[in-house]
Design a protein around this nucleic acid. Sequence first.
DNA 1: GTACCAATAAACAACATGTTGAAAATTCAG
DNA 2: CTGAATTTTCAACATGTTGTTTATTGGTAC
Lengths: 196, 196
Amino acid sequence: MSIYIEKNRKTKELIQKSFLQILENKRFESITIGDITKIAQINRGTFYLHFIDKFDLLDQIEQQLFTEIGNHIDELQSRYSFTHAFEKEQEHLANTLFSVIELHSPILQIFLSDHGRAGFHIRFRDAFSEKVRINLEKNEGFNAKLKVPLEYFLSFITSAFLGLIEQWFQNGLDKTSQEMTSLYIDIISFIKRDKW
Amino acid sequence: MSIYIEKNRKTKELIQKSFLQILENKRFESITIGDITKIAQINRGTFYLHFIDKFDLLDQIEQQLFTEIGNHIDELQSRYSFTHAFEKEQEHLANTLFSVIELHSPILQIFLSDHGRAGFHIRFRDAFSEKVRINLEKNEGFNAKLKVPLEYFLSFITSAFLGLIEQWFQNGLDKTSQEMTSLYIDIISFIKRDKW
DNA sequence: GTACCAATAAACAACATGTTGAAAATTCAG
DNA sequence: CTGAATTTTCAACATGTTGTTTATTGGTAC
């Protein structure tokens, strides 16, 4: 019995892997089931035993990715004792996020590019927002001080963050996650201090 | 002769219009040429007299949109005499952008959604960045004060801006462009003043 | 009237899709 | 070890989409 489960899992994994491999060089829209099964060296019909269609395939990969990234963030965050100054906590959260992004950069780069699927950046940002919201709301009185609707502030700050990540990718990951954190802090400081 | 040009132009416009109409309810990926020509009530072959394929169709609409938006921004900006304080200029630019966005919101909402095409938000942001860059560099000494690479700062701030726009759309355009400008100013002020 | 042009209609091969029934591989009871 | 049951894989099929082509229609230009 168990060898079937294992085999099934392996085939499914093979399909996902082959698909991601093709996605590096070809837009999602123009990839066919045949392309995938040819690389995976399986029958085209086998594909349909594991996925409804290619949209389902991407959905499942996307869902896995969000789960993995979420878990990573939670793990890295939990290792941090919450007795630091608020600025330090912000810096730590930023560093956590950049680290996790770096870890998953191969897939994220593709998904955020024009080879990926429309709307990914919004779904990704929403997942991001949730983590940031939790962190911000630990700061008591935050909502009182903020005069604009929270959803707008979250969209603003998480999009800005995502913008840095996209630029980081566009520059071919030219910096470490530590350097990206510093860069982020520098930008916030610049906005706070200077006229621009 | 001129009536031929006119007829040709009208048919091309009809195709674009019909396509956008379908795009409101269906993802770009799953729209067929047949869908479009059925709505436009023309022969399927006629489509190919005007466009290479559906990707070409979207490319042309996207290009037109960027040109139109760019022209609108330039026009609104040029009406403003540049003798104001720097903060006022920033506010004016923001207001200009929100106004133009509002004007083109029907198409932009679709293009930024998951019905659109992957990578649109990056191409849109790049076009945006150019306008913001020109405005920022009017402030002499800006580059000297900024310690981080300009491209990162631009990505940061234009993505943040785009984030507000996306949230605005998501809330069903619940505010006027004036209110959005105020909201933007409030967020910048909040970041400057408060710990968060 | 003749040359010209946009749009149409119909047909085509090539390819992609999703389904199905048969075949091969694997497990396990006796 | 063997045969029945179960699971995975596959080849073939019907259907739909794509982009191209050829002949034809209804106008316009000169």
